[in-house]
Design a protein around this nucleic acid. Structure first.
Lengths: 203, 203
DNA sequence: GCAAATTAATGATTTATTCAAG
DNA sequence: CTTGAATAAATCATTAATTTGC
């Protein structure tokens, strides 16, 4: 339960359930209209604001990605080890096995992404990340849209010179749909490495 | 000059000048009220919206930091090299000089931050980042405030069920002032290293 | 059992990175 | 190449879960 004067939103179980269901069914980065609808719907189950919904999706998406990455990285390591042992165990007498093991990638370093994608699929990974391609849904074609989804500005009612209570208004009718961005399948970058390093502290 | 149906804001020279002057005089992350004032002031010189002002400060702050970091890093490297050479050149006959040079920090690795702060100061670097401590200015005590300053949501006028044109409203009266955050003086982290790596691609 | 102490989960902010217009 | 715009990653901060000693 949430403390009385809590500084942050504490979602009710129903709210979380609904949000997760929406996420699963494809809503990853809801636009302004969607957030509005979701918010008013969820407000039935408890106090909630639009920014809570927005943050929830942002965090959820990021953390799902993170979980997936970790899982993949772990599996990757496992498989490389296994394949490696398999490869060297099949040799008559491996002279520099220990060196190779610690220093070099296995003998198929160029295709590691594709290879492991296929292999991981065999092991039951569902390629959830492919869903991310449809992150932007663009459900309604109204003039209004969400700018980036990373900016929230409050209304300042104390300023009398303001005719409209809203700070930013969109009068700009931008042409064309937003550029659909694909996700890199195997983002084994510095970010991942750092994460893998930190992981050891958590357990 | 800005094309007629341009998709993005093209600031006039006057606007840029004023923005830079404001930045120099301490405004690094203006709140909603300040942005409103700046916007209406600058609108005298040309078409401008609140989000333009917001983005401008965000980008400017980030890129100033970036410039400073690069300068510092470069200077750091230079000094370490110089000190290093000075140190080893003073030895009678350095047997493993090349090894040490590539593998080890100089003999004062624990205080590198403090040391270089002092040294850099001598060379004329102005510690601009110390200004960042006063980033949050909290000029007015109105109920409305800027949330993070990193979220912008548009109004959806096409939804008739909306009583207020604004999407997110702040009714939460949080207690106490926002926690003033200090900036780390020498953020020589993985991020910096990565940047230094990438820098070579740019020139 | 049950609070104080730790740890994990997650809501909220800030910073870094990337995209793309000009 | 510069820079406005947008997105993603990292980080901070608070709350929920848990462990631990009594």
């Amino acid at each position: 339960m949430c403390p009385a004067g809590s500084s942050r939103w504490c979602p009710t179980p129903e709210q979380v359930m609904i949000l997760e269901e929406m996420y699963r069914s494809g809503v990853k980065t809801p636009n302004a209209t969607q957030i509005q609808q979701i918010t008013s719907h969820l407000s039935f189950y408890g106090k909630i604001e639009g920014k809570n919904v927005f943050y929830w999706f942002q965090n959820h998406k990021a953390r799902e990605r993170q979980k997936l990455r970790r899982k993949l990285t772990k599996q990757l390591q496992l498989q490389q080890q296994q394949l490696f042992h398999h490869y060297f165990d099949s040799l008559p007498s491996p002279p520099f096995q220990h060196l190779s093991y610690y220093n070099s990638p296995p003998p198929f370093p160029q295709q590691v992404g594709v290879h492991d994608a296929a292999a991981a699929a065999k092991q039951g990974i569902n390629y959830t990340w492919k869903l991310d391609v449809s992150e932007r849904m663009d459900v309604d074609k109204s003039m209004m849209k969400m700018y980036g989804g990373d900016l929230l500005m409050m209304v300042d009612l104390s300023t009398p010179s303001l005719s409209s209570p809203c700070f930013f208004t969109t009068a700009t009718a931008t042409a064309g749909p937003p550029p659909l961005k694909t996700l890199e399948l195997f983002p084994v970058t510095a970010s991942n490495l750092k994460e893998e390093c930190n992981k050891n502290n958590n357990g």
